[in-house]
Design a protein around this nucleic acid. Structure first.
Length: 132
DNA sequence: ATTCTGACA
DNA sequence: TGTCAGGA
């Protein structure tokens, strides 16, 4: 299961390919990078090279945008995601309890609701999550 | 031909 | 976010 993650992390696509795969403009892709959402490598010629993981993130960003979440909100979501990852490394020993799952889910719902009102007044998207 | 950075009538 | 410039 480590080989796969290694491949997914390999920066092998030039921005043109990523544009076709994500339907995002080069402008947007570079902007999201500037926002710290992705960290593509650079080749010998200073050209950005993206990995499958980068593309996945870009695709997720597209979804969030379509749901009406703004950049600030998306950044929060990823910051939270990374904090969760660090926490998961620390809690690798402790088994995840049902209460934990409920808490995380609840926090996400609450956070999403706040993100909507951070700058926009789009309709609530609480239907996104299936009841646990 | 493709991508990069910087800038804004 | 679009788009154009000027360079690699």
């Amino acid at each position: 299961m480590k080989e796969k993650e290694l491949r997914r992390s390999m920066a092998v696509f030039p921005i043109g390919t990523v544009m076709k795969l994500t339907d995002l403009t080069a402008r947007q892709i570079r902007y999201y990078e500037a926002q710290g959402l992705i960290q593509p490598q650079r080749n010998e010629g200073n050209r950005r090279m993206y990995s499958l993981n980068d593309i996945d993130v870009l695709l997720d960003i597209k979804d969030y945008l379509a749901e009406g979440i703004n950049m600030a909100g998306i950044k929060h979501i990823y910051d939270m995601k990374q904090r969760e990852k660090q926490k998961k490394q620390a809690d690798l020993k402790r088994p995840v309890t049902d209460a934990d799952v409920r808490r995380i889910f609840h926090d996400e719902l609450l956070q999403q609701g706040r993100l909507q009102n951070e700058q926009h007044d789009a309709a609530p998207l609480f239907h996104k999550h299936k009841p646990l």
